[in-house]
Amino acid sequence: MRYLFACIAIVGCAAPAYAADHLVSQSGKAFSVAALKAKVGDTISFRNQDPFVHNIFSLSDVQSFDLGTFAKGESRQVKLEKPGKLEVECAVHPEMKLVVEVAK
């Protein structure tokens, strides 16, 4: 009983809020969503479902990242580090755009 109580206490202290993973797929040269709301600490998993490569990146002031090129069936993940608005694009296909609103 004492052991169980300790576990509950540790979990209660260590996880004030659970970070979420947002799955965004790429299909037909488009993101599965055009806009996304998330929180600092969340992750976004980008999954390529097209039979050619994508290169997801952001050069936003809030956070910049380059996930490199990845082929069909592969995924790349990015952790959201700061609050603000991120404009995410595909370098290969400039018409692909995703706006992520990151809250604290």
């Binding site: 040269k29 039979p51 050619f52 490569v53 370098a91 290969v92 296909h93 400039p94 018409e95």
Partner: peptide, 15 residues
Amino acid sequence: AACHQGFNFTDNGFH
């Protein structure tokens, strides 16, 4: 067709 797609045979992309 990985790049040369659609009626205009281009993905309008950069490679």
